[in-house]
Amino acid sequence: MRLQTGPFVFRINSPLPKVAESLHLLYDAFPLAEPDAFADFHVRIRISSGLRRVLRPQSIFDLDGIEPFKPLPGKQAFALLEWGMNWCIYSHAHQFLIIHGAVLEKHGRAILLPAPSGSGKSTLCAALMCRGWRLLSDELILIDPETAEIHSLCRPVSLKNRSIDVMRAFAPDALITAPIPDTSKGTVAHMRPSATSFAGIQDHALPWRVVFPRYREHSATQISPLSRADTFMRLVDNAFNYTLLGTLGFRTLARVIDRVQGLDAEYSALDDIIARLDALVAAEVAR
């Protein structure tokens, strides 16, 4: 299968029915690439052969025969595929400055949510998407060095542990895959991008705010501005290939900093922080 996800074409090969099922559920609105289009990555997900298949089945990911990860238990095949596809992008696509984080857009303004795992970034990202923000990406922020625009990947949002139930309650209509327990990140499930997000996959967006989310139980929503230098350095901390790009990385990030305001956001109630961000963007549009 040749799948077009934003700027990349993946040729995905897997004999596993579970993987096919999840792909169908999450990606069925994606365009299939033209058969003669160039596929950037030939990836495969399969179950190990031989004795292990019987004793302890393992799923193996490979790109052109290169296996970058240790095998995972057989049941985690789809999660491994998603991680593997991310790896393909962040370790090869140096035409972009790539930052670990989510990015969403409303009224032509993009909010970047750079954050390490466990900060509640994906939960907030999924919730914003369910309330009308367009998802560009949940894991990888792709910044074009030429234009400082962010390109959309529009891949499924990966939800972990408690956030799976939180999102089920928050958006009962959203499509979420069956949870995969006991991965290195706990239980993982994937949420399908919204129709709006699919529809806008070709539209790049300019960065407008950089929000560093921090979930803290029972806290009141608190949004405080950050200095430009702090915002810059925190983006560097979350970047995959900032040093690799050298001067180009610095220049690209400097262009981003010129456009954005950095914000620290502590929250516990999703509806509340979404209302605050909606108000921010509405005020900006009204100006």
Binding site: P68, K70, W83, P116, S117, A239
Partner: peptide, 17 residues
């Protein structure tokens, strides 16, 4: 080989991953 996405970002080390 690495854990998938383990220590994902922080490529500030002197050499590429």
């Amino acid at each position: 080989r690495q854990e998938p996405l383990a220590g994902a970002a922080t490529s500030t080390a002197g050499r590429p991953r």
